[in-house]
């Protein structure tokens, strides 16, 4: 766990909420849900050691492995 990254993302998330919340008070509930869900995903992801972790990018890379081998020649 990288505390530095996690805490800086947490500060950024707090700033975003402070900045955005007054503007979106009258928006539909769906907007607020999406806003907080995306922020939450961002916060959760920041807990991991992302550069050395498998993820969508790595999955796609292994999906296209034959093409990668063709390009390496």
């Amino acid at each position: 766990m990288r505390w530095g990254a996690f805490f800086s993302v947490m500060v950024i998330v707090a700033l975003i909420i402070l900045y955005e919340w007054p503007k979106m008070k009258q928006n539909p509930k769906k907007d607020k849900m999406a806003f907080f869900t995306l922020l939450f995903i961002g916060l959760v992801l920041s807990m991991f050691d992302l550069p050395h972790m498998g993820g969508p990018t790595a999955w796609i890379q292994s999906l296209f492995r034959p093409f990668g081998r063709f390009m390496e020649k």
Partner: peptide
Amino acid sequence: PIVWPIGILILEFSFWSL
């Protein structure tokens, strides 16, 4: 409303698995 949250996701995707 989701411009800023997406910014965080973009930042994380720029590191993820690379």
